[in-house]
């Protein structure tokens, strides 16, 4: 046994802890996750894959009153991402507030909800970045909408959320190497990444790729 190996072994023996109930812990963690996963995957897919809906929303007038009678809040102009986060090089697409029955993935319109206590679009972007950075993103867009938090298991009641959508990133595929000795080049499994932030508390809710 080499000296280094002996020292590693001594250190592991001294410092590493192996819980006797680790196996039960692993099983219960797997069970818990399996319960939540299906719902979360569907929701994330809806949030992120709703790019088509967002395109329609982009063509809406910037704000003011719509052709109908309902009041539509106006989203503030989007600050360039680099001004909000120095490391961000993504082009910032216009901010969106979902109104008039329009939805974007899991988020619905904010109609009838009090928008006075929400954090700013830039703050939501900053908080999403703090959770996961995307230096390689080409575009980013922040959308304010609402969701039934109880139904989605994000909290309770109908709440306001920001969806921050990054486009043009590389979501690496982490997969086992099927053949020993073969090192596959890293590959991207997707280009979208979405993060949901609670618009009132600013807390991170969920994130992922579709």
């Amino acid at each position: 046994m080499t000296d280094l190996r002996r020292r590693f072994q001594a250190e592991v023996h001294r410092g590493a802890r192996v819980s006797p109930d680790a196996y039960e812990g692993v099983l219960s963690r797997a069970r818990r996750r399996s319960r939540n996963r299906r719902l979360q995957v569907i929701l994330l897919a809806l949030v992120i894959a709703a790019g088509g809906g967002v395109v329609v929303l982009r063509s809406l007038p910037a704000g003011g009153r719509s052709a109908g009678t309902a009041f539509r809040p106006t989203p503030p102009p989007a600050t360039p991402c680099q001004q909000v986060i120095p490391q961000c090089h993504a082009r910032r697409l216009p901010n969106i507030i979902l109104t008039g029955g329009r939805t974007s993935g899991a988020l619905g319109p904010v109609d009838g909800l009090d928008l006075s206590r929400v954090i700013s679009f830039d703050d939501a972007l900053r908080r999403a970045w703090a959770n996961s950075t995307h230096e390689d993103a080409k575009t980013v867009q922040v959308t304010l909408g609402s969701a039934d938090a109880t139904k989605l298991r994000w909290g309770t009641g109908k709440r306001l959320y920001y969806a921050i959508e990054w486009e043009g990133i590389c979501v690496p595929v982490i997969a086992p190497t099927p053949v020993p000795g073969y090192s596959p080049p890293p590959r991207c499994g997707g280009t979208h990444w979405g993060t949901v932030i609670d618009a009132t508390t600013g807390k991170f809710v969920v994130e992922g790729s579709a």
Partner: peptide
């Protein structure tokens, strides 16, 4: 766990 402990230097994190 030993491997993770040597990577992280922290027992709880390693587990």
């Amino acid at each position: 766990v030993g491997f993770c402990f040597l990577l992280t230097g922290q027992s709880a994190e390693a587990e």
